[in-house]
Amino acid sequence: MYLNSIFTDPVRLERLMDISQSSWLPLIEGMIQYTIPLSFIAFVLGLAIAVLTALARISTIKIFQVIARVYVSIIRGTPLLVQLFILFYGLPTIGVVIDPFPAAIIGFSLNVGAYASEVIRAAILSIPKGQWEAANTIGMSYAQSLRRVILPQAARVSIPPLSNTFISLIKDTSLASLILVTEMFRVAQQIAATNYEFLLLYGQAALIYWLVCFLLSLGQGRLENRFDRYVSR
């Protein structure tokens, strides 16, 4: 019936075209202003947290191991949406008020940090012990060995799984709409609320997400090639 009405009713078709046309810009704005910065900042901060967490997990100092384990366990064991709600709606009840965007940054960074730390830990552990020893025998400290020898090799191993993390993150930022960040999906919701064309607007939003993720997966391929120059295939 709905479908029918689109094709038989030229007035309705025109209305849809109009809404669609006028929606692209605000949607893309939401993407560029919030979705992409949110994803990007949270990913960078998350990676930093992840490296530290991974190092804590493999360190010989018990207390570091425990803190890292508990952190990863909490983040992985609770829904992202609940984490965001605690940050944005929960904390104010004890007097900690955080604006939507910073709250989202904190939430997504912590989330990425936990998941990526497992990836990075596995990547570090996959580097043969002989690499640490070679670094040691030429006099490198722990930090130098990590920075110059271990992490560059671990980075190569981590690219595919970390790309997945990043792509998931971009899609997950749509959850930030629920803590009032006007990222793309919230923009879509707001427009749809005025004209009730939910299918159209959510479809447009989906299309943009897909396009961005597709471009990113192209980037992933190029990055992998760059890192593969030193291994035989």
Binding site: P128, G130, A134, R148, P152, V231
Partner: peptide, 10 residues
């Protein structure tokens, strides 16, 4: 080392 342990990325 027996297995050289060169840095493969250099």
């Amino acid at each position: 080392f027996q297995h050289y342990n060169l840095f493969p990325h250099m």
